[in-house]
């Protein structure tokens, strides 16, 4: 449905960096700065309770876009994202994402695909957690 040229807009815009394990991409409660595309490695999504307890309840893998939903909703991050392993991660700042979506509405469909993947991953985590 989406032309490859449209997809490549993301690739042309993102700043790809290598991250060591244990580095934080964003903290729970922070305002979104952009979205993170995982090209290699894994990222832990850590949830914290008021009493200080925190647990990794989801893990993001290559092909996932981390922080996308918060960027779309412009709402603070609801978890902390930390690299579990060394990772190669592309970053697209929020202002550039908005500009791209204004200039190329066809990109919205790609966003829908990422969000749909995210929701499926959440439901998968819920199945796993409820079986514990």
């Amino acid at each position: 449905m989406m032309a490859e040229a449209v997809e490549s807009q993301f690739l042309n815009t993102e700043q790809i960096e290598r991250w060591p394990a244990g580095k934080t991409l964003f903290q729970e409660g922070e305002e979104p700065r952009g979205i993170y595309f995982i090209h290699a490695g894994e990222v832990d999504l850590v949830f914290s309770a008021r009493n200080g307890n925190s647990r990794t309840l989801r893990v993001s893998h290559p092909g996932d876009a981390v922080g996308l939903s918060d960027a779309i909703a412009n709402s603070p991050h609801d978890c902390t994202a930390t690299t579990r392993t060394a990772a190669r991660i592309g970053f697209v700042p929020l202002s550039e994402l908005r500009q791209m979506l204004n200039d190329s509405p066809a990109l919205w469909f790609r966003i829908l695909q990422f969000l749909s993947q995210d929701i499926n991953a959440c439901w998968d985590s819920m199945r796993t957690i409820s079986a514990r």
Partner: peptide
């Protein structure tokens, strides 16, 4: 494909569902 406005509204819906699922994960897991 034809109405990008519908894409935006669907994205908002999916985003709301995602946040709701994250809240459930938090509740079940913590």
């Amino acid at each position: 494909n034809i109405h990008s406005e519908a894409c935006m509204h669907t994205a908002q819906q999916l985003s709301e569902k995602y946040h709701s699922a994250q809240r459930e994960i938090r509740s079940l897991g913590l």
